[in-house]
């Protein structure tokens, strides 16, 4: 009894606490080093409120008359780039996701190769992808569509591969035992189990792509970003504010749409 009373309960072991402390210490050291060496000009910070006030003053009144003549077409282009790019990503991500699922493809080398493609797709930012494809295809929506497609492979492929790895092996065993060919096993064994996750990922990515396709035009890849870039370079701030407002509205509508569809199908 007395032994139980002297027993000290601890949530974490010593090494766990040490590891946590090491993470916090490491972050604190990195932060202080960064704060000391980063080049910030304090005068610019003091000046910021004046500059922001000036910015809003120039943005007002908004030039709504510009929407029908200059913005609407570009906005539709942006939405088409996002949708077509997401479809392109799916076409490319399905085979790569299948290659990456280690319960379907049993060659570690192929799994690893697929992971490499997925990681490279995700690590390069959408604007950098856009720059690359503008260099390849020239400015315009083609570069934007391919950019959105390549940028999304990593996200869609990774989550699709994970969904495939989590399927219940029962139906697959049954299909294999009855002598079904490989494609039927995939279509009737794996796909029905992974499909809800897949469509969820598709919708989620489309939502992200609407945001991204609104900015890739800044480097020339088509859509509303090109109109924004022109307005910024010409200092038409009252047009910039209309463009930003319309991007905001479209993004919010896309999010509401995706939430509504997800509630229906999942």
């Amino acid at each position: 009894m007395s032994q139980a009373a002297s027993y000290k309960w601890e949530r974490f072991t010593f090494s766990e606490r040490l590891a946590r402390f090491a993470v916090f210490l490491g972050f604190a050291i990195a932060l202080s080093l960064s704060m000391r060496s980063v080049q910030i000009i304090p005068e610019f910070l003091y000046d910021a409120p004046t500059q922001v006030a000036d910015l809003f003053k120039r943005m007002w009144p908004m030039d709504f008359a510009y929407y029908p003549e200059g913005i609407h077409h570009a906005m539709m282009e942006t939405l088409h780039i996002a949708t077509l790019g997401t479809l392109l990503a799916i076409v490319m991500a399905i085979p790569i996701g299948v290659l990456g699922a280690n319960n379907i493809v049993h060659f570690p080398l192929l799994n690893w190769f697929s992971k490499l493609i997925l990681v490279s797709s995700r690590s390069v930012n959408s604007l950098v992808w856009a720059l690359l494809f503008v260099a390849v295809f020239g400015p315009g929506p083609l570069a934007g569509t391919v950019c959105i497609g390549f940028r999304s492979i990593g996200f869609v492929g990774k989550l699709f591969a994970e969904a495939l790895e989590e399927v219940d092996p029962g139906p697959i065993e049954a299909l294999t035992a009855s002598g079904a060919p490989w494609f039927s096993i995939f279509l009737k064994g794996y796909w029905p189990q992974a499909a809800p996750a897949f469509w969820g990922v598709f919708l989620f990515r489309w939502d992200i792509n609407v945001r991204e396709s609104a900015v890739i035009g800044l480097v020339g890849a088509g859509g509303i970003g090109m109109v924004l870039d022109t307005a910024l370079n010409l200092f038409f701030w009252n047009r910039v504010s209309v463009i930003l407002l319309s991007i905001f509205v479209v993004v919010i509508l896309a999010e509401l749409l995706v939430t509504a569809i997800r509630k229906r199908i999942i």
Binding site: A214, L218, I247
Partner: peptide, 28 residues
């Protein structure tokens, strides 16, 4: 939160470059 989320970071970056000038502060 919705406002912070709906704009891509690049758009914020453009506005902050206007507000605090070129350099890492705008990025931060």
């Amino acid at each position: 939160i919705a406002l912070c989320r709906s704009f891509h970071p690049v758009i914020f970056a453009i506005l902050f470059v206007k507000a605090v000038g070129f350099g890492p502060l705008a990025g931060i």
